[in-house]
Amino acid sequence: MKSLVLSLLLACSLPATAAQMFKCSLTHNLDNGDSDPSVEILSRDAAVLDTGTTFTFSTDGKNKITSPVLHPVKSEDGETVLAAKQNNLLFVKLKNSYVLRNEKEGYVFGECVPDK
């Protein structure tokens, strides 16, 4: 009986997606209306946790933000990215970067490399 239960549990278990930590360069972008947008580098050592379908980060080093579940979306250049909207925020996962954006400002975690 125990082996039957164990077999059923193994057959029904879902494959686990390993979460991965990345070190990224964090920039803050602010649209100033008619003038050029301002871009400020906030950190060259920002952490992002990528679970595959979500990502977690902090823009201030204190408060953590987790994206909603991301879904494949075709970008304007035909590339598939993962994205989700929550309220007025857009979360996007690209090849080596993660984006949080609203209408006027955004944060970009770019140049991400695996954190060892």
Results as ranks from 00 to 15, higher is better:
42 L>V: 13
55 F>G: 06
14 L>M: 15
6 L>W: 10
20 Q>V: 11
66 T>V: 10
4 L>M: 10
28 H>Y: 10
103 E>P: 07
34 D>K: 11
66 T>R: 11
68 P>T: 10
100 L>W: 00
49 L>G: 05
84 A>M: 02
49 L>M: 15
22 F>N: 10
115 D>I: 08
113 V>M: 11
35 S>P: 03
33 G>N: 10
108 V>M: 07
13 S>E: 14
18 A>R: 13
47 A>H: 06
14 L>F: 14
43 S>E: 10
41 I>A: 09
36 D>K: 11
82 L>W: 00
111 E>L: 05
89 L>T: 12
57 F>M: 09
107 Y>P: 03
70 L>D: 03
56 T>M: 08
88 N>P: 00
46 A>N: 05
4 L>D: 15
89 L>D: 09
58 S>R: 06
16 A>K: 14
82 L>I: 01
77 D>V: 07
17 T>C: 04
116 K>E: 14
13 S>A: 15
108 V>N: 08
23 K>H: 08
13 S>Y: 07
10 L>W: 08
104 K>G: 03
112 C>T: 07
22 F>D: 08
64 K>R: 11
35 S>V: 11
49 L>Y: 08
15 P>F: 06
86 Q>K: 11
3 S>K: 12
104 K>A: 06
11 A>Q: 08
63 N>A: 12
38 S>Q: 14
2 K>D: 13
19 A>I: 01
105 E>I: 04
91 F>P: 06
91 F>W: 09
83 A>I: 03
45 D>V: 02
70 L>K: 02
80 T>N: 04
113 V>E: 15
62 K>L: 12
14 L>I: 15
6 L>D: 14
45 D>H: 09
49 L>I: 13
3 S>Y: 10
8 L>R: 09
35 S>F: 04
10 L>E: 12
87 N>Y: 08
68 P>D: 07
52 G>K: 04
19 A>S: 12
47 A>N: 07
13 S>K: 08
63 N>E: 13
9 L>N: 02
114 P>S: 06
48 V>G: 02
55 F>V: 08
17 T>M: 07
81 V>S: 01
62 K>G: 05
116 K>F: 06
110 G>Y: 00
2 K>A: 10
109 F>K: 01
116 K>Y: 04
107 Y>E: 00
59 T>I: 13
20 Q>E: 14
24 C>K: 02
16 A>M: 14
54 T>N: 12
88 N>E: 09
50 D>Q: 05
21 M>C: 04
34 D>W: 09
53 T>Y: 04
94 L>D: 07
47 A>T: 15
83 A>D: 00
48 V>W: 02
26 L>P: 05
67 S>E: 05
49 L>P: 10
79 E>Y: 01
17 T>S: 10
87 N>T: 11
90 L>I: 01
103 E>K: 13
24 C>Q: 02
16 A>C: 13
33 G>E: 10
49 L>R: 11
32 N>A: 06
29 N>Q: 12
9 L>Q: 06
88 N>R: 05
115 D>P: 05
97 S>W: 00
36 D>R: 08
3 S>V: 12
5 V>H: 08
71 H>R: 12
111 E>V: 07
11 A>V: 15
